Amino acid sequence: MTLNERLDQYIFDEGIAVEEIPLFYYNGFYDYESDWACPVITLNSNIASERQRAAIKGHELGHHFTLSADLFFAPYLVKSRDEYRADRWAAEYYMPVKRLIELYEQGCRTPLDMAEQLEIPVEYLYKGLGIYYRKYGLYEDFGQYRIFWNPFNIKKDRRRRK
């Protein structure tokens, strides 16, 4: 099952409607106070890449779980906080640390290879790595692995316990 299909299933399970229309300033937005009976994710129909579409769906689904205010009329600080929360939710959904370690074990060494396997654009991988850097600091230890966030690198130390 691809990332796009998993996101579609998750969106369906949460009871969120998805619509695609041509948008000029946004790639997508989430509306929970619409005339519909359920929340709506609106996507730009001009997006051709399935990876870009999946990344935007993940971000908008992140708004579903983390939104604290209507962002259209909110002050800048509230908007930036809620955008960060949605990005963080999306990054933790489509590139969890455990999955990064699995990809390292499978032989993916570069961010481009990892983005290919995660089925997301490389820009979103770097955005996710920046979020993890902000969350964990310069590096974090996960079992036998030490992950450096900036610059991105994974090292395995066999002397450590699993």
Rank of each mutant, 00 (worst) to 15 (best):
G130A: 14
G15E: 14
Y76K: 14
Y32I: 12
M95D: 03
D82W: 08
Y94W: 08
L3N: 00
E116V: 07
P96V: 04
G58K: 03
D8C: 13
D141M: 01
I101C: 11
Y30E: 14
E116D: 11
E102Q: 11
D70C: 06
L71R: 01
E123G: 10
L103F: 12
F148P: 00
L43G: 03
K127P: 00
P75T: 09
L43W: 04
R161M: 10
D8I: 12
L43S: 03
Y124P: 02
N153H: 15
Y104E: 06
K156C: 14
D70N: 08
F24V: 03
D35Y: 06
A74I: 10
S45L: 03
E20A: 01
R158V: 10
E33V: 04
L77V: 11
T66C: 13
M114D: 04
F152E: 05
E5W: 02
P75M: 13
A115S: 07
F142R: 01
P111V: 02
Y25L: 08
I11E: 04
G62S: 13
I120K: 00
E123N: 15
V18G: 03
L138N: 13
F73P: 01
L100Y: 05
Y30W: 15
L71K: 01
P22I: 08
W36N: 15
Y126L: 10
V40N: 05
I11T: 03
L103Y: 05
E140I: 15
E123I: 15
D8V: 11
G143F: 03
D141V: 11
R160V: 07
V40L: 02
Y124G: 08
A48I: 08
F24T: 01
L125Y: 05
F72N: 13
P22F: 06
F12C: 11
T2C: 03
Y76A: 14
D157I: 09
P111G: 12
E83V: 03
P151C: 14
M1A: 13
R53A: 00
E5Y: 04
Q106V: 07
T66G: 07
W149M: 07
P22L: 10
D157C: 08
H64E: 02
F12V: 06
R99L: 10
P22Q: 07
N44R: 06
R51H: 15
P22D: 06
I120M: 08
L138W: 11
A55C: 15
N4R: 14
G107W: 01
F24C: 12
E105R: 04
Y25I: 03
P22T: 04
H64M: 01
G107K: 07
Y133R: 12
D31Y: 05
E119D: 13
K79V: 05
A37C: 04
L7C: 03
A17W: 11
A48C: 09
R158M: 10
T2N: 11
F142W: 05
G107I: 11
R81H: 06
F152H: 07
I16E: 02
V40C: 06
A69R: 04
V122K: 04
G58D: 00
L43E: 08
V40S: 13
F152L: 08
K155T: 13
G130D: 15
G62L: 06
I56Q: 05
